[in-house]
Write a protein that binds this DNA or RNA. Structure first.
Lengths: 334, 334
DNA sequence: CGCGTTTACGTCGTTCGTAACGATA
DNA sequence: TATCGTTACGAACGACGTAAACGCG
């Protein structure tokens, strides 16, 4: 049994049981791949694939188990390589971050600018997607980090570290009646206007609806979008009152922002990564730049935890920063 | 990086950093081992060993991390091999059991006899030792199972499955005054006699002493041994009253047995094995022969648990059998 | 001078890529 | 006939073992 054989095995499985496609991804010849698989099957004396004629039809049940073990083997081999790079303080590589629009547009720019000062030779990839897509991307090793809000249940196999909390902000055009409001904004007042807000891909939306329902109200959501910039555009058009994450409020906006703190439950943004992965040094550092309380030592403690409940326990008495709009740096919540 | 390199690395570490010794264990030449290590260090661009002149002085901190990862890699490779053997229903191999004298002498013979009927081609190795020694032996892969009572804390990295519970039995010579006892035996009565019992290597002894202390008594232990047969010999000599595990009472004995149920806290015997190991089919079967409630499905559930607390939860509502003496099969506790 | 490691070198097995062949849709 | 996998074969590479040199106690 060789690492090469296991690598070939996974490549075949990950390329739809097509040996030719696998061999191309592996930058090697197709007969070589075939032969190594045959050798592996002979050594184990075990059929890994069901064959239909000459081509591979499916992975046998036993094969699935071998595949699973092979994945952890190759992951550990990768980890050894990463360990070596870390101790050498190697400062180049790639950082692939997957996140949502709000983070990418309003929160990350400043973090990434500081990151680049430290690591000019690390190539950055920014991927966007919904929580579900991010979960898949981490699983498929396409991204190193997922940064998202809510939907912790989607990321069952990841370490999820809370980064900061945030409230929602109400956006209205300057001439809107809510812009001239004297007292604090109430949820009843909001319910009397058409609303423009996010299509939440997870439990977020219902938490907003729940806040209305708790008062016996039904919000009049006339328009939803995934993207705060799109929402703002429609608010400017007078289509309704915008409800966006506070981070998405830019002081340069021509819209009037009304703090909605207290009206809706506070949200928490998480950063997540595969538990079984050794992080490159610059990855840990990125996390600390993004959320200063995530020191290297703390991250190590979280990785040592057996599962997410252990991680949650560590953060039980950590005060998370609260993040507002206008490019404001995180401030203390209390 | 090759599996061979990792295997050589571990062999060197496990042979006191002596490359020559390692190469002999590996049935290969010493220069070959040296070269592979050098290649590994070059590929990772990382010093794995501190050198003192030509020979290896110690493992570098980074090297320790690599060693740890390499161990899990080779463990998984082994697991793949085991998986293959299991699906082929291969019925030969080795079963190495580590246990204490009482199990080996009074409980296991019958289990092993039945096991041999099923698996005549599995070589059996029976190792004996204290709980501490057994823990080390499992860790060093010298035994597959440890069967022991108490001392769960010693086996931190193992899956520990409870097998049965047992009480203690009091043994006295036929002519002893306690042999003519009418009513139930009390702890006061015991305290009035010199006692002969086990040297418990773990918390067991104190639990016995505690039972006396709870009544404000101090037991007069005149002789201790690790071995029920030795204890019986000294009881026959009239040296004192014997307190042994119920399993150790043989109906053929010329001693009178008095049930001590209720006098002392009940003990539980466990079977433990490394969590990260795939069990050969005959190993699971052995467990079921030893403790019939440990079905394959249950063992699988326990392996899926993240840690021992998860395993304990599974057994919270499992009724363990109670085991008495005279080669008696386990009977229900209630 | 013995012990253990490294260097040097010839042999052998393995992997690789190319090319030809076979089966399937 | 196009696609995909297997078989065949020569070239290159890499691991192994032996032998000899080197350092250290």
């Amino acid at each position: 049994m060789t690492l090469r054989q296991l690598r070939y095995l996974l490549a075949i499985v990950d390329n739809g049981l097509n040996i030719t496609a696998a061999s191309e991804k592996l930058y090697t010849s197709q007969p070589g791949v075939s032969k190594q698989i045959r050798l592996l099957e002979e050594e184990l004396d075990l059929r890994l694939f069901e064959r239909k004629g000459r081509s591979l039809a499916s992975v046998t049940p036993a094969g699935e188990e071998v595949v699973a073990r092979a994945r952890t083997v190759l992951q550990e081999i990768d980890n050894i390589r990463t360990l070596a790079l870390n101790t050498r303080h190697e400062a180049d590589g790639t950082l692939a971050i997957g996140t949502t629009h709000t983070q990418a547009r309003y929160v990350l720019p400043e973090v990434i600018a500081r990151f680049r000062e430290h690591y000019p030779n690390v190539a950055l990839e920014l991927h966007q997607g919904t929580s579900e897509q991010l979960a898949d991307m981490v699983e498929a090793h396409q991204i190193d980090f997922a940064i998202a809000t809510g939907g912790q249940d989607l990321f069952a196999d990841l370490v999820m570290l809370p980064c900061y909390r945030w409230d929602r902000t109400i956006l209205v055009p300057r001439e809107h009646e809510l812009a001239r409001l004297d007292g604090p904004l109430t949820i009843d007042a909001l319910a009397r206007h058409p609303l423009v807000t996010y299509v939440f891909s997870f439990s977020g939306e219902s938490s907003l609806k729940k806040a209305f329902a708790a008062e016996g109200l039904t919000p009049d959501v006339v328009f939803t979008a995934r993207d705060a910039d799109v929402i703002k555009t429609y608010v400017r058009m007078g289509m309704g009152v915008g409800i966006v994450a506070s981070m998405a409020h830019d002081c340069g906006d021509d819209l009037v922002a009304i703090d909605a703190e207290g009206l809706f439950p506070r949200s928490t943004t998480w950063i997540g990564f595969r538990r079984d992965t050794v992080l490159r040094r610059y990855m840990s550092h990125f996390m600390e730049l993004f959320a200063p309380h995530l020191t290297d030592a703390l991250v190590q403690r979280c990785l040592a935890a057996a599962d997410q409940s252990g991680v949650d326990a560590i953060f039980r008495d950590v005060d998370l920063p609260l993040r507002g709009g206008c490019g404001q740096a995180p401030a203390d919540a209390d």
